[in-house]
Design a protein around this nucleic acid. Structure first.
Length: 803
DNA sequence: AGCACGCCGACT
DNA sequence: GTCGGCGTGCTC
C-alpha cells in the first residue's frame, strides 16, 4: 500500500473529500487507516486523517505525506464509518465529524513562521525585524506582523528574503513523571561506593537510596534530602542512578475515596424491567429500550446491573448523563460499583484530563465510560450496551456543527455492535415515547418509587392571587410557612428559580423602554456584582443606567428575579436560615459545585437555592420541601417545546423531595396555574401530559408528527439576507413534495446577533428522501456569497431551538 | 482556509 | 508603463 487517502483539516465544501498522498518509503507499513498525518496542502502543512490505503490513484503526480502524528490509529474502522454517517446526516464537513469524535487535545494547532531566505543576511532586514530574528532561526508570523506590515512581509517573501512556513503543532500532552532508579543491584551498588568519593549532598542521596532501594521521584528524594535536585544529574553521570520517565495519567478523581458498593436487591419492578434488557444482552440483540421510571424509582441500579452483566461478558458500556459535573453523585455511584474500570468524560475536566481519560478507553484499560454528550464517541471496540440517562435532555443535541444528537449516534453505534440501548427518563421526550408506543422502541415502565416512598404532594400557588391579597414578595404565604416549618424541624429545602427565558432585563416604568443590546436584537441582562448590563449573545457590556436613556425618567428598574435577590430576601424574612446558593457565579470555579453539594448534604445549610443545575440528580434523604419560585417563565418563550420543557422541569425538580424515609412536599408558584403542563406535573401524570401535548403537536404539525429542518442565513446586510433566504426558500419549496410545509423566509426569533441579521426557513416534513440533496443544492448556489461576502448559511436537521 | 494567478484603475 | 485592488479557482 503506497498511497494514503486523506481528509485534510480545511473545513470548506470544496475540500470536503479525500486527497491522495504517496507514502514515503520510511513510513511504508507504518501508516494505517484512522491515523492522523501531516500533509502538504497547497503551500502549507495541514493535519489530516487517513481514510484508506491503496495502491493506485487517479491523480498522477502525488505529493508525499510528511509524517504520521500517531503511533496507533486514533479512529478505528467503526468510527471512520461513523464520521461518514455524521457528515451525511447532519450536513457537516467530514473533517469536523472526525474532530468531534476525538478529545480536544488531539485537534491540531498550526503555527505560521518566518525564516530567512538562503542568501539573506540579517543586516539586510529592517531594524525591527533584526531584533526579532536576533539569534533565532525563525520568528512567529504573528510577532513579525506586529513590527512590519503583512504586505511588506509577503512581498519580500516573494522576493526570496524570507520563507513562510507552517508547522503543525503536535503538542506533547502526555504528562511525564521523572523517576531515578539505582543503576545496579544492591550489592553491586555498595561495592562501587567503596571505590569513589562523593560530595556531601551526593552521599546523602545515596544513603537515602540504600535505605529505600527502589525508584524514587524527585519530589520524594527532595523530601528527604533537601536540595537533592542539583546533585542528581552528576549521580546519573557517575553511573549510580538512572533517570527514567514514566507516562502518568492525570486522574481528576485520584484523591477521592469511593465506597465500594455491591449490587442491591432489586425491587419487583426493577426485576421486571431488567429481565428483557439482560435477555437482549444475552442474545446480542440491537434493541432500543425506553425506560420510563418515575423520579426515585431506581433507574440507576438497573443501569448498574445491566452494565455488570455486559462487563462479565467481556464487553464495554457507555453511559451518557446530562453534563456530568453537575451530578457528582452519579460519578460516585459508577466509580463505587466498578472502581477503576470507569473513565469519566465531562466538560469540567481540563483538556489534558480529558485526553488521559480518553486514552484509558483507547488502551482498553477501562470497560465503562460515564460522560456527557461527546462520550458517545468513546473508542470502544466491543460495545455491549449504551445507556442514555435523562434521555429527554436537550443537551444531547450539539448546537453547533456537527449538529448531532447523541441518541442518533447511539442508535447507529448500537446497530454496528448489535448491542442494546437504554433510554431512561422520568419524563421521556415525546419523540421517544411515541416511538415506544409504536413499537419501534421497547417500553419499560417503573411507576413506583423505591423505599416505599410516595411521590411528593404538590401544591400549586396562584401568584396573581397572592398579589391581590397584597403579598408583593416572591414567596407565597404557603411556601413561607412551610419553609419556616422545615427549618424548625431541621429538614432541608430546595428552592428552584427558573431563570431561563427570563433574564433580568432593565425596563423604564415610565416609557416602557427595555434596554437592548446595540448589536443584537435581545434585551440586556443586569449583573448586580459588577453593576453592568451584559449581552449574552455578543458579550457587549455597559454600565447600568441611572436614568432611562430614552426619556430620562428615574423610574428605571431591574426586572426579573435573580438568585442573589432571592438570597437577600430570604435573609430578611428568615434570618436564621442558612443558605447555599448555586448558580453560574458560585459554581464557576472547578470543583465548587461538588463542594457546595457536599456541604448541603452534610447539613451545613437549610436551603439550597439554585437554577437549572439543581434540578437533576440530587438525592439527599433530608430534603422534604421543594419550592419552585416561578414555574411559568419558560412557558412564554417562543418554542413549540415550551410546555414539554416546563413539564419536564417541574417533574424533575419535584422529584428531589422525599426520596427516602421522610415524605416530601412541593410548592409550585405560578402565574398560570391552569396551564396543563403545570397541572399535570402536580399530578405526576406523564401519560396524560403526553396525550394532551401530542394532540397539540398534531394540530401544529410539529414533531413527533413532523420532522423539522431549519435553515438560517446571516449577514450584516439585511437586504442581502432577505434576498438569499427568499431564493433558498423558493427553491426548496419547488423541489420537495407537496406533503412538506416550507415556512418562511422569516426573521429568526433573535433577528440580529453581533450586527448580523438573521433570517430563517423552517421545513416540516414527514418523508422527503430528497431533502438533503435539495438543501445542499440550494446552499451550493450561494457559495460565492458565502465566500466573498462573509455570509453564513447553516442547516440544522431536527433542531432543538429555533433561535 | 490561504494563496497564486490574473485582469483593471491611479501613480511614478 | 507598474503597483496593487480583489475576483476566481485550486489545493492530492
Amino acid at each position: 500500500m503506497k498511497i494514503a487517502s486523506v481528509i485534510v483539516d480545511v473545513p470548506t465544501t470544496q475540500t470536503d473529500r479525500p486527497f491522495d498522498y504517496a507514502i514515503p518509503d520510511v513510513w511504508q507499513g507504518f501508516i494505517q487507516r484512522g491515523m492522523r498525518v501531516i500533509v502538504p496542502f497547497g503551500n502549507r502543512q495541514v493535519q489530516g486523517f487517513v481514510l484508506d490505503l491503496k495502491n493506485h490513484s487517479e491523480f498522477s503526480n502525488l505529493k508525499e505525506l510528511i509524517e504520521p502524528m500517531d503511533l496507533v490509529p486514533v479512529l478505528n474502522d467503526e468510527l471512520l464509518h461513523l464520521g461518514d454517517f455524521l457528515a451525511k446526516t447532519t450536513l457537516c464537513m467530514k473533517i469536523s465529524a472526525y474532530q468531534v469524535m476525538l478529545p480536544p487535545a488531539l485537534k491540531a494547532k498550526y503555527d505560521k513562521y518566518l525564516i530567512l531566505g538562503n542568501d539573506t543576511e540579517l543586516q539586510q532586514l529592517p531594524f525591527e525585524l533584526q531584533l526579532l530574528f536576533d539569534k533565532k532561526e525563525r520568528v512567529l508570523w504573528k510577532d513579525a506582523v506586529e513590527v512590519m506590515s503583512a504586505s511588506y512581509l509577503y512581498r519580500e517573501a516573494r522576493n526570496g528574503m524570507f520563507e513562510v512556513i507552517y508547522e503543525v503543532k503536535n503538542k506533547g500532552n502526555k504528562k511525564k513523571i521523572t523517576y531515578y532508579r539505582p543503576a545496579f543491584s544492591e550489592q553491586e551498588f555498595k561495592k562501587r561506593l567503596e571505590s569513589v568519593t562523593l560530595g556531601n549532598k551526593q552521599a546523602q542521596i545515596i544513603q537515602f537510596f540504600l535505605a529505600y532501594f527502589q525508584p524514587h521521584t524527585v519530589a520524594s528524594i527532595e523530601e528527604n534530602v533537601t536540595g537533592a535536585r542539583n546533585s542528581l544529574k552528576s549521580l546519573v553521570e557517575k553511573g549510580f542512578l538512572q533517570k527514567e520517565e514514566h507516562e502518568q495519567y492525570r486522574d481528576p478523581y485520584q484523591d477521592r475515596q469511593f465506597v465500594r458498593t455491591t449490587a442491591l436487591a432489586l425491587t419487583e419492578e426493577q426485576q421486571q424491567v431488567i429481565s428483557p434488557i439482560l435477555k437482549s444482552i444475552e442474545e446480542v440483540n440491537n434493541d432500543v429500550f425506553l425506560l420510563h421510571g418515575v423520579t426515585g424509582s431506581g433507574k440507576t441500579e438497573v443501569y448498574l446491573q445491566s452494565i455488570d452483566e455486559v462487563i462479565k461478558k467481556g464487553k464495554e458500556a457507555i453511559v451518557l448523563v446530562p453534563e456530568i459535573s453537575l451530578t457528582p453523585q452519579m460519578v460516585n455511584r459508577f466509580k463505587g460499583r466498578f472502581g477503576n474500570k470507569v473513565a469519566v468524560l465531562h466538560s469540567g475536566l481540563s483538556i489534558g484530563e480529558k485526553y488521559d481519560e480518553w486514552r484509558k478507553i483507547q488502551r482498553k484499560e477501562v470497560q465503562v465510560v460515564v460522560g456527557a454528550r461527546s462520550a458517545i464517541f468513546a473508542p470502544f471496540e466491543n460495545l455491549g450496551i449504551i445507556i442514555i440517562d435523562e434521555e429527554h435532555e436537550t443537551s444531547y443535541k450539539q448546537e453547533d456543527s456537527p449538529r448531532y444528537h447523541a441518541r442518533d449516534v447511539a442508535i447507529e453505534r448500537g446497530n454496528y455492535h448489535q448491542c442494546p440501548i437504554i433510554l431512561g427518563s422520568a419524563t421521556p421526550s415525546l419523540e421517544s415515547f411515541s416511538r415506544a408506543k409504536k413499537g419501534v422502541y421497547t417500553l419499560l415502565t417503573m411507576a413506583k418509587r423505591m423505599n416505599q416512598s410516595a411521590l411528593p404532594k404538590v401544591e400549586i400557588v396562584d401568584m396573581r392571587e397572592e398579589l391581590r391579597t397584597g403579598n408583593r414578595s416572591m414567596f407565597s404565604q404557603a411556601l413561607l410557612e412551610k419553609m419556616r416549618d422545615r427549618i424548625e424541624k431541621k429538614e432541608q429545602i430546595v428552592l428552584f428559580l427558573n431563570k431561563r427565558g427570563y433574564s433580568s432585563f432593565v425596563m423604564c416604568r415610565d416609557c416602557g423602554l427595555v434596554v437592548q443590546c446595540p448589536h443584537c436584537e435581545v434585551s440586556l441582562t443586569y449583573h448586580k456584582v459588577s453593576n453592568q448590563l451584559k449581552c449574552h449573545y455578543c458579550g457587549y457590556e455597559s454600565y447600568a443606567p441611572k436614568t432611562c436613556p430614552e426619556c430620562q425618567s428615574e423610574h428605571i428598574r431591574f426586572f426579573g428575579t435573580g438568585t442573589q435577590k432571592v438570597e437577600e430576601e430570604i435573609g430578611k424574612i428568615l434570618p436564621e436560615a442558612r443558605i447555599i446558593r448555586m448558580d453560574v457565579d458560585t459554581t464557576s470555579r472547578k470543583g465548587a459545585h461538588e463542594k457546595l453539594l457536599t456541604a448541603f448534604q452534610e447539613g451545613k445549610a437549610d436551603i439550597l437555592l439554585g437554577t437549572q443545575m439543581i434540578a437533576k440528580g440530587l438525592d439527599f434523604p433530608n430534603i422534604t420541601l421543594v419550592g419552585v419560585l416561578t414555574a411559568d417563565t419558560m412557558l412564554h418563550i417562543p418554542d413549540f417545546r415550551a410546555s414539554e420543557k416546563t413539564f419536564q422541569l417541574l417533574t424533575q425538580v419535584s422529584g428531589r423531595a422525599g426520596r427516602h424515609q421522610l415524605p416530601g412536599e412541593v410548592v409550585i408558584q405560578t402565574y398560570t396555574p391552569e396551564h396543563y403542563s403545570v397541572q399535570l406535573a402536580k399530578e405526576h401524570d406523564f401519560i396524560q401530559f403526553y396525550q394532551q401535548e401530542m394532540s397539540i403537536r398534531r394540530v401544529g404539525q410539529y414533531p413527533p408528527y413532523y420532522y423539522l429542518a431549519l435553515i438560517n442565513v446571516s449577514h450584516e446586510n439585511l437586504q442581502l439576507v432577505v434576498k438569499v433566504m427568499d431564493k433558498i426558500t423558493t427553491f426548496i419549496r419547488h423541489n420537495l413534495s407537496n406533503q412538506a410545509r416550507v415556512l418562511g423566509p422569516a426573521a429568526s426569533p433573535i433577528a440580529r446577533i453581533n450586527n448580523r441579521y438573521r433570517y430563517q426557513c423552517l421545513i416540516k416534513y414527514k418523508k422527503e428522501p430528497n431533502l438533503i440533496p435539495v438543501i445542499q443544492k440550494a446552499i451550493a448556489h450561494f457559495h460565492e456569497e458565502q465566500l466573498k461576502k462573509g455570509m453564513t448559511i447553516t442547516v440544522d436537521l431536527n433542531p432543538f431551538t429555533m433561535m
